[in-house]
């Protein structure tokens, strides 16, 4: 397997404080990579860095040529104003093709076909002319994943994707992500609070608290002191 993104000794910071310090990690093709940590531990900063929206203050990020060409699909946190946005499912999914548009103003039929196939993969084709705001939380999430797939097939970055979903939709969501990862070979990079669910799914776990407190496989994580604390199994008073 080849590495899609390699970070070596990377620092990210804003004007007067460091958000992420000395981070080394690797996202490989077909990986299921999860980042956990408390609020303000630098997870969102890391996502911005991987998307190229923030330059590292030290260290290097190497992005594979292949990934540079195909791009990264991104699923940001949902905003409040989106929930009652008047747009059809088709319009939202198609907007994923934007990164390939460059300065050309209109979408081509090839891009429209790509949007259709992304909707097929997520089983939302029958909803394509429905209004986004009339969908359930889980359906909206599927639409946004389809949009991300329309942007890129190799790798998805998901930022706290289960926020605001009901328990049933959460299970559905994890099933979907696992399917995309195993069957379609999409590398997943997910930032989440939901450690308990993630441990059973991911290939790699990064516990971030400015620095990498833990970086390894889920089974190692369950045995590590950080993992035991975060999973609630260990002694909190340690």
């Amino acid at each position: 397997m080849s590495a899609l993104i390699t970070c070596s000794h990377v620092d990210f910071g804003y004007e007067n404080h460091d958000a992420v310090v000395d981070l080394s990690m690797e996202v490989e093709e077909g990986d299921y990579f999860c980042v956990v940590g408390v609020n303000g531990s630098g997870k969102s900063t890391l996502v911005k860095g991987l998307l190229g929206l923030l330059k590292p203050t030290a260290g290097t990020i190497t992005v594979a040529e292949e990934l540079k060409r195909t791009g990264i699909g991104y699923l940001p946190q949902q905003t409040r104003s989106q929930r009652d946005f008047p747009a059809t499912v088709c319009e939202v999914v198609l907007s994923g093709a934007l990164s390939r548009r460059g300065s050309r103003p209109f979408y081509s039929s090839a891009e429209k076909r790509m949007a259709t196939s992304a909707m097929e993969k997520l089983g939302i084709q029958s909803l394509q002319n429905h209004c986004y705001r009339e969908l359930s939380g889980g359906q909206q999430q599927r639409v946004l994943i389809a949009r991300a797939l329309c942007a890129a097939r190799k790798m998805l970055i998901l930022d706290e994707p289960i926020t605001g979903l009901d328990p049933w939709a959460i299970q559905d969501f994890y099933g979907l992500i696992r399917h995309l990862n195993r069957e379609e070979g999409v590398a997943i990079f997910m930032v989440t609070h939901d450690v308990a669910n993630v441990v059973s799914q991911a290939d790699k776990i990064l516990h971030l608290q400015q620095k990498a407190l833990f970086y390894g496989t889920p089974s190692e994580y369950e045995k590590s002191p950080q993992g035991r604390k975060f999973l609630g199994g260990g002694d909190l008073w340690e």
Binding site: Y74, P76, Q82, L98, S99
Partner: peptide, 23 residues
């Protein structure tokens, strides 16, 4: 609104995604 329609849609619907798409 004619020539940048898709970008306006993206920026209006989801700024974070639009930014990541290079808008």
């Amino acid at each position: 609104f004619v020539f940048c329609y898709n970008k306006i849609f993206a920026v209006t619907f989801d700024e974070s995604f639009a930014r990541a798409a290079g808008v």
